[in-house]
Computed example of a mutant assay.
Amino acid sequence: MEVREIDLHVKRNFDRWHSFLIEHGISGFAPQETAAIDRTFIWNEAGQIIATGSIAGNILKYIAIDDAYQNGGAMFNQVVSKLMNEAAQLGRFHLFVFTKPKYIKSFSYVGFHLLAEVEDGAVLETGTPDINDYLDQLPKINDQHDKKIAAIVMNANPFTLGHRYLVEKASRENDSVYVFVVSQDVSLFKFDERFKLVKAGTEDLKNVIVVPGKEYMVSYATFPAYFLKDDQNVGRFQAKLDAELFKNKIAAPLNITRRYLGSEPYSKTTDVYNDELSKVLPPEVEVRIIERKKNVGGKIITATQVREAIQRDDLSMIKNFVPETTFDFIKENIGLLKDRF
């Protein structure tokens, strides 16, 4: 048996790999899925692929093994161990895998721990720092389990007066509010910039705690769904999985009993996400959907409009949509921001 790394940019390699995965029930090959792959390995026997697995960032994906070589799990263990060792050589010691529920036990045998499970899929992690380490380092308040704690998850690309309005409302209605800022850098504003703008824009609200979401908050860049059969269900699958993870692994230990969402008149993706959260989180976590704030001209405030105004150099329009702290940052860095488009 031969184990080797292949270059998926070589068409012949990609076609063989693609055909093997199709034969073994994996049919999702969206460009954003395959483009994220760093390394891919295949196991060959007599010139035929009998197993494969890939590393994408700190995610193991596209793992498949021919039925004839299952060997009671020995081949599966070999594939996953190989991927984990290769990831370690890349300095990646905290890993995730998204898989079908029927493979949860297999991954648990090689050291993965379940984070969330829904009908169509599950997400597991291994290594450190894990979710317990993440929770331990979050700021806490006195008598947290006797307080009314709320949460907001936001990308804040950038932080607008609409975001501020949502945080203010949650701040007034609860003893304390966690604002989780999505950590993945897939936005115009980098994570460090977004995090600083949220902190600066809420600094006067003393019961608001701004924290990074790390890998545990929704990010469509890191929630692969390549193993799903129906691409139309991908958005709902991602939202369900994210909601289950939040409810059981984040909200429960932090005593978060309320989650605030902004209404979404424009984005179907966000609307679906809000809908799924409203189904999954209650009764343990009450969902409050707040009507979006409008500016003095009666326009709903969105970060999309701010980003479009940056492209146009329209600082006067931006000023009506963002807090002063965000405006000052944009004004000082508008050239840099425009270069990122």
Rank of each mutant, 00 (worst) to 15 (best):
residue 234 V to Q: 06
residue 299 K to E: 14
residue 271 D to F: 11
residue 237 F to K: 09
residue 330 I to A: 04
residue 232 Q to E: 07
residue 333 N to Y: 09
residue 323 P to F: 08
residue 270 T to M: 10
residue 318 I to C: 00
residue 261 L to R: 08
residue 242 D to V: 12
residue 270 T to H: 05
residue 324 E to A: 11
residue 289 I to N: 00
residue 328 D to S: 13
residue 267 S to Q: 08
residue 231 D to R: 07
residue 257 T to L: 12
residue 273 Y to T: 01
residue 258 R to P: 04
residue 255 N to Y: 10
residue 322 V to W: 06
residue 258 R to A: 07
residue 274 N to E: 06
residue 236 R to D: 02
residue 249 K to E: 01
residue 236 R to K: 14
residue 294 K to A: 09
residue 277 L to V: 10
residue 324 E to N: 02
residue 302 T to H: 10
residue 322 V to C: 08
residue 277 L to K: 09
residue 297 G to T: 04
residue 271 D to Y: 11
residue 301 I to Y: 01
residue 334 I to P: 00
residue 251 A to C: 10
residue 270 T to E: 10
residue 311 Q to L: 09
residue 335 G to M: 11
residue 241 L to S: 05
residue 274 N to G: 06
residue 316 S to A: 15
residue 315 L to S: 14
residue 236 R to Q: 07
residue 325 T to H: 03
residue 261 L to C: 14
residue 248 N to W: 08
residue 242 D to K: 04
residue 324 E to G: 00
residue 248 N to D: 03
residue 284 E to N: 12
residue 319 K to L: 14
residue 270 T to G: 07
residue 315 L to C: 14
residue 283 P to M: 03
residue 256 I to S: 03
residue 246 F to E: 03
residue 309 A to K: 06
residue 273 Y to D: 05
residue 282 P to C: 02
residue 290 I to F: 07
residue 239 A to V: 08
residue 335 G to A: 10
residue 237 F to Q: 06
residue 334 I to L: 12
residue 282 P to T: 05
residue 288 R to Q: 12
residue 245 L to V: 11
residue 307 R to A: 04
residue 243 A to C: 05
residue 259 R to T: 01
residue 280 V to H: 03
residue 310 I to A: 02
residue 297 G to R: 14
residue 311 Q to F: 05
residue 293 K to D: 01
residue 246 F to H: 04
residue 239 A to T: 07
residue 286 E to Y: 04
residue 263 S to L: 09
residue 264 E to I: 10
residue 252 A to R: 13
residue 299 K to L: 07
residue 313 D to R: 15
residue 230 D to K: 06
residue 308 E to Q: 15
residue 234 V to C: 01
residue 232 Q to M: 04
residue 263 S to F: 07
residue 251 A to F: 01
residue 332 E to S: 15
residue 322 V to H: 05
residue 268 K to W: 01
residue 305 Q to Y: 07
residue 238 Q to V: 10
residue 291 E to F: 00
residue 275 D to N: 12
residue 333 N to Q: 05
residue 242 D to C: 03
residue 233 N to S: 06
residue 262 G to H: 08
residue 317 M to W: 00
residue 271 D to P: 00
residue 250 I to C: 04
residue 266 Y to I: 15
residue 242 D to A: 08
residue 330 I to G: 05
residue 300 I to N: 05
residue 276 E to N: 08
residue 328 D to N: 13
residue 253 P to R: 01
residue 286 E to M: 12
residue 290 I to A: 09
residue 327 F to L: 13
residue 258 R to T: 12
residue 286 E to I: 13
residue 279 K to L: 08
residue 307 R to F: 03
residue 334 I to T: 06
